[in-house]
Design a protein around this nucleic acid. Structure first.
Length: 105
DNA sequence: GGACTGACACTGG
DNA sequence: ACCAGTGCCAGTC
Protein backbone atom coordinates (compact mmCIF):
# COMPACT_ATOMS: atom_id res chain seq x y z
CA UNK A 1 0.00 0.00 0.00
CA UNK A 2 2.66 2.48 1.00
CA UNK A 3 0.52 5.49 1.87
CA UNK A 4 3.64 7.59 1.45
CA UNK A 5 4.06 6.65 -2.18
CA UNK A 6 0.42 7.34 -2.95
CA UNK A 7 0.85 10.76 -1.44
CA UNK A 8 3.82 11.35 -3.73
CA UNK A 9 1.73 10.41 -6.77
CA UNK A 10 -1.03 12.77 -5.71
CA UNK A 11 1.44 15.62 -5.28
CA UNK A 12 3.05 14.99 -8.65
CA UNK A 13 -0.40 14.97 -10.25
CA UNK A 14 -0.94 18.45 -8.81
CA UNK A 15 1.99 19.88 -10.76
CA UNK A 16 0.48 22.31 -13.31
CA UNK A 17 1.28 21.86 -16.99
CA UNK A 18 4.20 23.89 -18.28
CA UNK A 19 5.87 23.82 -14.88
CA UNK A 20 8.31 21.53 -13.09
CA UNK A 21 8.91 20.54 -9.47
CA UNK A 22 11.97 19.14 -7.72
CA UNK A 23 12.08 15.91 -5.74
CA UNK A 24 12.72 17.94 -2.61
CA UNK A 25 9.55 19.95 -3.17
CA UNK A 26 7.47 16.82 -3.60
CA UNK A 27 9.02 15.36 -0.48
CA UNK A 28 8.16 18.55 1.41
CA UNK A 29 4.55 18.33 0.24
CA UNK A 30 4.54 14.78 1.48
CA UNK A 31 5.71 15.96 4.88
CA UNK A 32 9.40 15.03 4.76
CA UNK A 33 11.66 17.46 2.87
CA UNK A 34 14.50 14.97 3.33
CA UNK A 35 12.65 12.05 1.73
CA UNK A 36 13.52 13.25 -1.77
CA UNK A 37 15.16 9.87 -2.36
CA UNK A 38 12.03 7.92 -1.57
CA UNK A 39 10.14 10.20 -3.94
CA UNK A 40 12.35 9.19 -6.83
CA UNK A 41 12.03 5.53 -5.87
CA UNK A 42 8.25 5.86 -5.82
CA UNK A 43 8.15 7.32 -9.33
CA UNK A 44 10.42 4.65 -10.74
CA UNK A 45 8.43 1.88 -9.09
CA UNK A 46 4.89 2.89 -10.01
CA UNK A 47 4.91 5.66 -12.65
CA UNK A 48 1.17 5.20 -13.33
CA UNK A 49 1.45 6.17 -17.02
CA UNK A 50 -0.99 8.85 -18.09
CA UNK A 51 -1.93 9.55 -14.51
CA UNK A 52 1.25 10.80 -12.87
CA UNK A 53 3.27 13.32 -14.94
CA UNK A 54 6.57 12.09 -13.55
CA UNK A 55 8.34 13.89 -16.41
CA UNK A 56 7.67 17.17 -14.58
CA UNK A 57 9.86 16.11 -11.68
CA UNK A 58 13.50 17.14 -12.00
CA UNK A 59 16.62 17.63 -9.91
CA UNK A 60 17.14 20.81 -7.89
CA UNK A 61 19.92 21.76 -10.28
CA UNK A 62 17.60 21.32 -13.29
CA UNK A 63 19.10 18.06 -14.51
CA UNK A 64 16.92 15.12 -15.54
CA UNK A 65 16.94 11.55 -14.24
CA UNK A 66 19.13 9.32 -16.40
CA UNK A 67 17.07 6.25 -15.59
CA UNK A 68 13.72 7.68 -16.60
CA UNK A 69 11.29 4.74 -16.63
CA UNK A 70 9.68 5.66 -19.96
CA UNK A 71 12.36 6.50 -22.51
CA UNK A 72 15.31 7.99 -20.73
CA UNK A 73 16.07 11.63 -20.03
CA UNK A 74 15.74 12.30 -23.78
CA UNK A 75 12.04 11.45 -23.87
CA UNK A 76 11.50 13.36 -20.65
CA UNK A 77 13.23 16.38 -22.11
CA UNK A 78 11.02 16.26 -25.21
CA UNK A 79 7.91 15.98 -23.06
CA UNK A 80 8.93 19.02 -21.05
CA UNK A 81 9.69 20.97 -24.20
CA UNK A 82 6.20 20.07 -25.46
CA UNK A 83 4.79 21.53 -22.27
CA UNK A 84 6.60 24.78 -22.96
CA UNK A 85 9.42 24.39 -20.47
CA UNK A 86 12.52 26.47 -21.20
CA UNK A 87 15.80 24.61 -21.54
CA UNK A 88 19.33 25.86 -21.16
CA UNK A 89 22.11 25.25 -23.67
CA UNK A 90 23.52 22.66 -21.28
CA UNK A 91 20.44 20.54 -21.94
CA UNK A 92 19.03 20.99 -18.49
CA UNK A 93 15.73 22.61 -17.53
CA UNK A 94 15.67 26.30 -16.73
CA UNK A 95 14.62 25.45 -13.21
CA UNK A 96 14.96 29.09 -12.27
CA UNK A 97 12.00 30.05 -14.44
CA UNK A 98 9.92 26.86 -14.57
CA UNK A 99 10.10 25.54 -11.03
CA UNK A 100 6.67 25.30 -9.40
CA UNK A 101 6.17 26.26 -5.76
CA UNK A 102 3.00 24.59 -4.30
CA UNK A 103 2.65 27.28 -1.64
CA UNK A 104 2.77 29.98 -4.30
CA UNK A 105 0.66 28.40 -7.03
C1' DG B 1 14.36 -7.38 12.89
C1' DG B 2 18.68 -6.28 10.11
C1' DA B 3 20.91 -4.92 5.89
C1' DC B 4 20.96 -3.23 1.06
C1' DT B 5 19.23 -0.23 -2.45
C1' DG B 6 17.62 3.95 -4.94
C1' DA B 7 14.79 8.77 -10.72
C1' DC B 8 17.96 12.95 -4.23
C1' DA B 9 20.01 17.07 -1.63
C1' DC B 10 23.74 19.48 0.55
C1' DT B 11 28.61 20.71 1.68
C1' DG B 12 33.35 20.74 0.72
C1' DG B 13 37.48 20.57 -2.25
C1' DA C 1 31.45 25.94 -12.22
C1' DC C 2 32.44 20.77 -11.57
C1' DC C 3 33.42 16.39 -9.04
C1' DA C 4 33.46 13.71 -4.73
C1' DG C 5 31.82 12.48 -0.26
C1' DT C 6 28.11 12.26 3.34
C1' DG C 7 23.38 12.22 5.13
C1' DC C 8 18.20 11.04 4.97
C1' DC C 9 14.03 8.49 4.15
C1' DA C 10 11.05 4.75 2.81
C1' DG C 11 10.82 0.37 0.56
C1' DT C 12 12.14 -4.18 -0.42
C1' DC C 13 15.07 -8.64 0.23
Amino acid sequence: MSNFYERVYENVKKIPKGRVATYGTIAAMCGNPRASRSVGAALHRNPSPGVVPCHRVVFTNGTLAKNYAFGGSSAQKELLKSEGISFLRDGRVDIKKNVWLPWIS
